[in-house]
Simulated assay, not measured.
Amino acid sequence: MRARLDTAASNTCLAYQLDDFSDGWLNAPHVMLLHGIAESAAAFNGWVPHLARQYRVIRPDLRGHGQSAALQAHETLSVASLADDVQQLATELRLERVHVVGAKLGAQVALELAQRQVPWMASLTLAGVLISPAAALSKWLGQWNQLLDEEGVEGWARATMPGRMGGALPSEGLAWWTQYMANTSAITVRACFQLIAASQEPRALEQIRCPTQVIAPVQPGPSSQFNQQPSLDEIRRWLARVPDAKLVELSADSYHIAATHPDTCATLTARFIKEQTS
């Protein structure tokens, strides 16, 4: 089911996809999947068959993405404002217990919600996360803005795709993701670049109380110019600050493992959620 909801508190309209193939007599928990920059709910299509039989899967389009409200010129985005949108969506849908999954930008939003200790958040899974986007990516933002100016979103997506996906996808897969991301407005992508520049390592990771799982690649990333994959040592460093957290190592060389390894990531997530609900 595809729907749009006006979130009065944040003054925007969010589109979301609900996938529910659970038995009608069961009170199936909700799982919310939060996507990355220049993506939408469709980024998690490969996850849905693994989750929607047991859970009610909600896939929002973040503000400025997919079918949600478009950004206006010079409108800004922040992780906090995107988290406000999601929090208001959960409130208006009257969600009581939600297992949240975040990838890339969605991981930043999910971490923000976890640090707020929102009462409906039952667990957190991160599949592709940079704990400080500013530290990891700011060195490239000048080049990325130039690519955006000269070649549009498609040119930027194409140039950065190898550093995002590693060697996991065939050329047809890289082409599909390039075209898919190119559907996003340049206004949104530029606002996301500004968000990246402002997004430092969270200060309140110790305040996260929900069980947390981080799925991370262990193989060296590509030698391409825009390799975005963080080191395992870096992930272990900040994950040690989260009280109830575990690291799951995935045999992959891509930063965007939610896209390159959807079946494995979704299976690991379903297993983790089951542990929290058994």
Rank of each mutant, 00 (worst) to 15 (best):
24 G>Y: 02
166 G>L: 00
60 P>R: 03
136 A>H: 14
8 A>K: 09
270 A>C: 11
14 L>M: 08
214 V>Y: 04
144 W>Q: 14
174 L>K: 03
87 Q>I: 01
50 H>S: 11
129 V>C: 14
170 P>V: 10
17 Q>T: 13
5 L>T: 07
181 M>F: 00
199 S>R: 02
149 D>Y: 03
265 C>D: 01
275 E>P: 01
136 A>L: 06
1 M>G: 12
215 I>N: 03
120 W>M: 07
172 E>P: 02
276 Q>K: 09
165 M>T: 09
106 G>R: 05
178 T>S: 13
82 L>Y: 02
100 V>A: 04
65 H>F: 06
58 I>Q: 07
3 A>H: 13
44 F>N: 03
62 L>M: 13
200 Q>N: 11
50 H>F: 10
130 L>D: 04
277 T>W: 00
192 C>Q: 11
256 H>L: 14
84 D>Y: 07
261 H>G: 03
185 S>P: 13
103 A>H: 12
78 S>I: 04
2 R>D: 14
171 S>A: 14
50 H>R: 10
263 D>C: 08
192 C>F: 03
115 Q>S: 12
205 L>C: 13
58 I>R: 00
52 A>Q: 13
263 D>W: 00
148 L>M: 12
3 A>R: 15
183 N>A: 14
164 R>C: 05
103 A>L: 05
75 E>K: 04
44 F>G: 06
160 T>R: 11
59 R>F: 03
98 V>L: 08
141 L>K: 06
171 S>N: 08
152 G>W: 02
59 R>I: 07
275 E>C: 08
235 I>R: 12
257 I>A: 06
139 K>R: 15
42 A>Y: 10
263 D>R: 07
33 L>C: 14
97 R>Q: 15
59 R>Q: 13
159 A>L: 05
192 C>L: 03
253 D>G: 11
198 A>M: 12
79 V>F: 00
39 E>R: 11
121 M>K: 03
199 S>C: 13
207 Q>K: 08
45 N>G: 10
3 A>C: 07
56 R>I: 04
218 V>E: 11
106 G>H: 05
258 A>R: 02
92 E>Y: 00
120 W>Q: 05
187 I>S: 06
78 S>A: 11
235 I>C: 10
101 V>K: 00
162 P>I: 09
63 R>L: 11
113 L>H: 02
250 L>W: 05
57 V>G: 08
99 H>Q: 06
67 Q>K: 12
252 A>W: 01
217 P>I: 11
42 A>E: 14
40 S>W: 02
50 H>I: 01
4 R>V: 04
256 H>C: 15
216 A>D: 09
84 D>K: 06
57 V>I: 04
243 P>V: 12
116 R>I: 00
197 A>W: 01
45 N>W: 01
115 Q>W: 00
169 L>V: 07
104 K>Q: 12
25 W>V: 12
173 G>L: 04
199 S>L: 02
210 C>H: 03
133 P>L: 08
198 A>D: 15
37 I>N: 12
56 R>K: 15
49 P>I: 03
1 M>N: 11
